[in-house]
Write a protein that binds this DNA or RNA. Structure first.
Length: 278
DNA sequence: AGATGATCCTGTATGC
DNA sequence: TGCATACAGGATCATC
C-alpha cells in the first residue's frame, strides 16, 4: 500500500537513474485500453527532465512539454527487471543498462499516463491535491482551518488527499494514535491544539518512514527490489489484539469509511455521538 | 457542494 | 486436498 514514504523512496531511486535519458519506447502491456493507461506512446522521443512527487503521484516532466504521471495504486512496483506476471507498462530508455523500466501491477489499481504538463483533468485527486506535508505553507493554522471546514470524520477527510497530500491508511492510523484522536471524531471537533500536534506527528512519522524506506507488508518493493523496514515500527496498524505501546490496552480494529482502522480504545476515546434533539 | 457508499481487481488467508 | 468465500484498499464515480 504505497503511501507518501514508499513513493518518495521510489522517487529517490528513480531520479538519478532516469534524469537526462530519452524515452525510446513507451508501451502498454497486458492492460486493457482505458483511462488508467493513456497516451503513453506520446512519451517516445522525449527526454526525462526529472522525477518529482506530489502526494502519492510520481510526476516525470518531459522535454516536449508532456508529463508522465504514475500512481502505484495498491500493488504497483517499478523495476529495471521484467516481472514474470502482471506487466502493465514498459519503457525503453536511451543510455547504458539498466535501460528498461517495468511497471508491474497485480491488482490494477495503479495508473500510468501521459498528459500535457500540469493538465490533470484526467486525475481529479491530483488536480485537487492538498499541500505537501513538508511544505512550509502547510502550517498549523492552514491545517486547523481545513479541519474546521468539515463535519465528517477526521480519518476519511485525511485520506481524501484534499487537506494534505500523501497520507494513506497506515500512516493516518499511526498519526491519529500518536495524538490520541479517534478516527471517527468529526474533523471540526479537533481542537486547534490537537491539529497542531497532529500536523507535527504526521510529518515526524512520514520522515521516519522515509528513513526506513517505507512499510512492506506484502507487495511493496523499492526500485532496487528491497522491502521497506518501517513495518517493525508501527504502533497500531496491523497490531489488533496486541497491547497498546503507551498504555497496554489491547488495540482494536474497526471499520471507518470502508477501511480497516486501528485504535487504542483508551488513548483514543470514541467521540460521543451527539444525536439530534427535539 | 459535501458526505457517503459502491466499485474496481487479484493474491493471500481462512473455512469447511 | 480442494473448493468457496472473505479480505486487503487508493482513487473514482454515482447518489443523495
Amino acid at each position: 500500500m504505497p503511501e507518501l514514504p514508499e513513493v518518495e523512496t521510489v522517487r529517490r531511486e528513480l531520479e538519478p537513474w532516469l534524469t537526462g535519458r530519452t524515452i525510446r519506447i513507451a508501451r502498454r502491456v497486458e492492460a486493457p485500453p482505458g483511462p488508467k493507461y493513456r497516451d503513453l506512446e506520446r512519451a517516445a522521443g522525449q527526454r526525462i527532465l526529472g522525477v518529482a512527487r506530489r502526494g502519492k503521484f510520481l510526476l516525470v516532466p518531459l522535454s516536449g512539454g508532456d508529463e508522465l504521471v504514475l500512481h502505484l495504486g495498491m500493488t504497483g512496483i517499478l523495476s529495471p527487471d521484467p516481472p514474470t506476471q502482471h506487466l502493465r507498462v514498459e519503457l525503453a530508455l536511451s543510455g547504458p543498462a539498466p535501460d528498461r523500466l517495468y511497471f508491474r501491477d497485480a491488482r490494477r489499481f495503479g495508473r500510468c499516463l501521459v498528459v500535457r504538463a500540469g493538465r490533470y483533468a484526467a486525475l481529479p485527486t491530483l488536480a485537487a491535491l492538498g499541500p505537501e506535508p513538508f511544505d512550509p505553507a502547510f502550517t498549523d493554522e492552514v491545517f486547523a482551518a481545513s479541519l474546521a471546514r468539515s463535519r465528517g470524520p477526521i480519518k476519511p477527510l485525511l485520506l481524501s488527499q484534499r487537506v494534505v497530500a500523501g497520507l494513506g491508511n497506515i500512516y493516518v492510523d499511526e498519526a491519529l494514535f500518536e495524538v490520541g484522536v479517534h478516527p471517527l471524531r468529526p474533523a471540526n471537533r479537533v481542537t486547534p491544539s490537537e491539529a497542531g500536534r497532529l500536523r507535527r506527528a504526521s510529518i515526524a512519522i512520514l520522515e521516519r518512514a522515509i528513513a526506513h524506506r517505507g512499510t512492506t507488508f506484502s507487495d511493496y518493493r523499492t526500485v532496487n527490489g528491497e522491502v521497506g523496514a518501517y513495518a517493525a515500527r508501527l504502533s497500531v496498524y496491523a497490531h489488533e489484539g496486541e497491547p497498546c505501546p503507551r498504555c497496554g490496552t489491547p488495540i482494536e480494529k474497526l471499520v471507518v469509511g470502508q477501511r480497516g482502522t486501528h485504535v487504542c480504545p483508551r488513548c483514543q476515546p470514541k467521540p460521543r455521538t451527539r444525536r439530534a434533539r427535539k
